[in-house]
């Protein structure tokens, strides 16, 4: 008999305790991010697709040494460059990334000795078309500087 009543009493008490917990949560501010309207800043070590790094003039650091293209195990990168008349350095004219095959392994970034390649923080990449994942990194660099 005593256990019967004490069980009821303890049960009832725990119900009120539970309601206290939810009430406290109720008055606290929300913690979620309304995604399409707000986005989170990606963390430092996030690996998005690769991206060209620019120098102060807004030109790519790349010297078209082809190391990244050769290093890529999935053959995602295709580069083209040409030598201007009278100048010693090659200038990058095309940097295409086939992101459909990229495994984000980072070998290209590691192999670049000229600080010309890095991971982007881009993650809003959903699409229904394959063509949307062939990135022209040179164009993206220009768009960034616009």
């Amino acid at each position: 008999m005593v256990t019967y009543f004490s069980e009821i009493y303890r049960g009832l008490l725990s119900l009120f305790e539970g309601m206290g917990v939810t009430f406290k949560e109720f008055i606290k501010p929300t913690v979620t991010v309304s995604y399409p309207y707000e986005t989170l800043e990606m963390c430092e070590r996030y690996r998005g697709h690769i991206e060209l790094i620019e120098n102060e003039e807004g030109e790519p650091n790349c010297v078209v040494c082809m190391m990244c293209q050769r290093a890529c195990p999935s053959d995602c990168i295709s580069i083209a460059g040409k030598k201007e008349e009278g100048s010693k350095k090659k200038v990058l004219t095309k940097y295409m990334l086939d992101f459909t095959k990229c495994s984000l392994c980072g070998t290209c970034v590691e192999s670049c000795n000229f600080n010309a390649l890095d991971f982007s923080k881009e993650y809003n990449l959903a699409s229904t078309r394959k063509e949307d994942f062939y990135f022209d990194l040179l164009k993206r660099l220009e768009d960034r500087n616009k």
Binding site: E25, F26, K28, P29, T30, V31, T32, S34
Partner: peptide, 13 residues
């Protein structure tokens, strides 16, 4: 809205 507040989300807004 109430459920959302308890779960610390905004709910339909």
């Amino acid at each position: 809205r109430g459920a959302a507040r308890i779960q610390r989300r905004p709910g339909p807004n």
